[in-house]
Amino acid sequence: MHDAGRPADLIKNMAAQVAAQKLSKPVLIGIHSGGVWVAEQLRAGISPAPEFGTLDISFYRDDFSRVGLNPQVKASDLPPVDRRDIILVDDVLHTGRTIRAALNEIFSYGRPERICLAVLIERPGRELPIQPDVAGKSLALSANEEVKLSNDGGELSLDVVKI
């Protein structure tokens, strides 16, 4: 089995990589739900603490015609993004479709200067030309494996499961 590692360590690792990106007064945006959890903890490791936003990409998903609307859809809550540097945060980068939807949604709010993609776990299976700028860890998972992030009162944990 793969060792996904401790999220707290991976997020520390992410914070160091974010610093190397040399962003100017970035806005930190987490994607619901896992990306928001990671972004909240990542924020503590960035100085000064960046402005914070959350994104629910349900209205931008490419499988709406097939599977319908997510009944748990939340409102997105973004600070102004026009001409800003943005750190877009998600828990797992897999097919890249979530990130595609998130990029589309962000552009409905304005034209950012630059968007940098930061993920806790990067794994194979990309269906779109999207790659992370910051990754807590790369896991060589196969198609029948999935990595799941759970949140127990602010305590994050990662599990690799067979599907």
Binding site: L69, P71, V73, F107, S108, G110
Partner: peptide, 23 residues
Amino acid sequence: TGILDTAESFVTVGEREIKKVPL
């Protein structure tokens, strides 16, 4: 209740720069 909850999220769409989603 599901319809009302989802409507809450659509309220914010009307407050954006681009008041459109691609659904």
